[in-house]
Nucleic acid binder design. Sequence first.
RNA 1: CGGGGUGUAGCUCAGCCUGGUAGAGCGCUACUUUCGGGAGGUAGAAGUCGGAGGUUCGAAUCCUCUCACCCCGACCA
Length: 565
Amino acid sequence: MRLSRFHLATIKEVPADAEIASHKLMLRAGMLRKLAAGIYTWSPLGLRVLRKVEAVVREEMNRAGAIELLMPSVQPKELWDETGRWEKFGGQLLKIRDRKDAWYCYGPTHEEVITDFARTELKSYKQLPVNFYQIQTKFRDEIRPRFGVMRAREFLMKDAYSFHIDAASLDAEYRNMYDAYAPIFTRLGLAFRAVQADAGAIGGNASHEFQVLADSGEDAIAYSTESDYAANIEMAEALAPSAQRPAPSASLERVATPTQKTIDDVSAFLGVDPKQCIKTIVVRGREGLVALCVRGDHEVNEVKAAKLDELPGESALADEAAILAATGARPGSIGPVGLPESVPVIVDRSAAVLADFVCGGNQDGTHYRGANWDRDARVTRVADIRKIVEGDPSPDGRGTLKIARGIEVGHVFQLGQKYAEAMGASVLDDAGKAVVMQMGCYGIGVSRIVAAAIEQNNDAAGILWPEPMAPWKVAICPIAAHQNAAVREESERLHAELSAAGVDVLLDDRGLRPGPMFADMELIGIPHRVVISERGLAAGTFEYRKRSEPENRALSRAELLDALK
RNA sequence: CGGGGUGUAGCUCAGCCUGGUAGAGCGCUACUUUCGGGAGGUAGAAGUCGGAGGUUCGAAUCCUCUCACCCCGACCA
């Protein structure tokens, strides 16, 4: 490729609204252009990278036995009504209307469409198992898109869906996909970790996420110092403390805390460790309100809480008026002591072993000290409802937990029969009996991988692409070619030779001065650079530099070709 | 959804408080000198000041409405 015939549009200034390295660099390198919030044009340069990622994903999916197809991005409402997700999916679903006023959505995911496809295509157990995938544009109307293509509304995703006669077959394919994902991210040069995950809105049983490790990641993952345990912090179990609850030794006493509402304020005011306080959160339950109690230094894990039987499947804070009506106090003074019978009190495992604790007084401007479970406060149930913190014991009993940040680039789910059941997707088994199929689904955020790779691989000069996703492998940079025919000829010859050898090579024939030319090649992250100059020609060597290394090397022609092929 | 902020040339921004002929840097075009780490000179093109309405002799500037975008929050008990 001759750069003079390509469209490269790098910029020196950092665009104002980019926050993180990958977003800044993608804009500076001219890979992206924003059209609207969370909606981007991929420039020719950006697209080259995106296509390379796509190619690796496609190759590994094919290798793992999945079959590619392509589904429509616009989907009729009727299909989504069948699973109830037209309503349940919420605001992320972009709903649109056609000229006849019929409703459609722009697909945020394709369980409905693939299940519809499967129920008409698949009739016999002999056609199973089968795994269909596509690489396609999705749209999710995110509350707050940010960081460029890291969290965009429109994005490119690889989504695969497998169909099975039974759970054992699903399990095997789940394992197969899990095993196929590691080589994808490894080939793309990413440092990643597979973690146990919550199934979220997609639903289902087993679920793992593949997280690229990066400080700018939006997810938190917990991992053990001693074992290979790793889980999204939403899922990581906080074990029950081994200690038994001490017997009460203090008597219950109401104290005035006129302006102290937060745990920090109350504990400082009363001279008590936050670990001796109970934090009470009031959420909307299935019927009425539910009180969630955790230790003062802990936080409620909303994902865990949402799974409680007492909650309607989501964790939403109660509004102040409802809290006041039910407890007699406002947030800041709520506690488990003396709550009405109608409010279940769910107590976290760590909170349940406290004695003589401080908690809200259910009367504005007061707290209790010396409170005790059972004696003073009713316990409906003890459950794991808090977020783990660093230093908690690992749930597998080996080591303690640490927390790292991650970018979710892949997610595998066992859906079970959730969609097949709702949409009536069944096949005949070997006894001629209709059996509802088991399903799995497996996603990879293709466009997000591009951003994640940059987060992990950049320096002051720009991007350092892992070779498999670099827009070109080699850049040829002629110095002062306009005044030196030999430089021109040698550059052309090397370009032709490498191209013929199948090397993805870029000849920078724009005629720029060396400074801007080098700056551009470094910014866009070409892994290998060869400088052709009068100096080098005179010495009979090529000046070669690896993007990841600080020094040039003088190579003979043979050495150079060897290094680049 | 709540709070805060910003919309002026392709990009980054100044000008607005205190109303009076639209600015800078980068980029772009032409010519020229220069040619191993984002060069210099000369000349030039380029903006319905997000949109609508209002106040005023006069609005980028003041007022009202509206749209878009950005940031923070949405675990506070």
